[in-house]
Design a protein around this nucleic acid. Structure first.
Lengths: 147, 147
DNA sequence: AATAAAATCCATAGATTTAATCGGGTTATA
DNA sequence: TATAACCCGATTAAATCTATGGATTTTATT
């Protein structure tokens, strides 16, 4: 039940972008890597994947950098995890995005499948209903609890 | 967010044992492997681990086999997954059983940690509150929906 | 135009984990 | 005493994860 480093780093980077005062401003990969303690080259791979998936946009050349392609409230954590880490489901036979049949004789009466289906839904309920903006707001709230 | 084959096979084997008419009866590894389509030698490893962890008990010799060491209602899926697959938490910094600090400057205001903490709790709420007996009953109910 | 900064692309290496197998042992019973 | 069954250490093969290196392209600035 693990989130890979790729997934973790990708989410940290995106939360960083979503926490910028101006979400459309360019942020350099180098800066993200330093702030979030992510190996720069590894982050490069991850951001490239996210760019191809339409999550971030980049501008090359001097003064370039990355920014969110969609508004922070339109990007869910579930979406990002699926891109970087694959299906949320603990086992394939309960996956929505990457279903595969398992070995059991009848999926409808498979006990493991029932429980893991519940787990999948519990995870998806959280991650698919939490946006980058939600996270950025929670962080803000925790940083300045007096308002 | 994956359950390993080891974890999957282990759970299937235990659910099989818990679904026996008499839970104290001996069931041969060979039989479980055949019914659940698990490579026999791999299953052997898994059952051995579960035996060392006090989940199952075995009897050697001709006519031997495995059975649950505790009543089926006293074994939770969470317990089993932790034995075979490690912590339920998606990232270590929210794990109860295997906490490790992460790289973020302040865990109390880390957005990723907040969300993943919620995910961990959602998973644990299900797996730590579902016993082998619960699963066996659900299977039974689904097999004979007319009563 | 020259230069420098930054992103992009591509290839791959090292480490770890996972899944499975092998080969021989031990135990217990018919 | 033969056999069925579990016990256990070692190993392999594949996949995955993490990370690195180097060449190329793009862009802004001087």
């Amino acid at each position: 039940m693990n989130l890979s480093k790729r997934g973790e780093y990708g989410l940290r980077a995106l939360i960083n972008l979503a926490s910028q005062p101006d979400t459309t401003a360019l942020v350099q990969m180098k800066q993200i890597a330093a702030q979030e303690q992510i190996p720069q080259k590894f982050l490069e791979q991850i951001l490239l994947t996210l760019r191809h998936a339409g999550i971030v946009q980049s501008k090359a050349g001097k003064g370039g950098g990355y920014y969110l392609q969609k508004p922070a409230e339109a990007i869910t954590l579930g979406e990002v995890v699926r891109i970087l880490d694959g299906p949320l489901a603990p086992i394939r036979c309960v996956s929505q995005m990457a279903y595969e049949p398992c070995a059991c004789p009848d999926e409808q009466t498979c006990g493991l499948r029932m429980v893991m289906g519940d787990v999948r839904n519990a995870i998806a309920d959280i991650l698919d209903n939490t946006t980058l903006l939600d996270v950025a707001r929670r962080v803000e709230a925790s940083q300045s609890p007096l308002t």
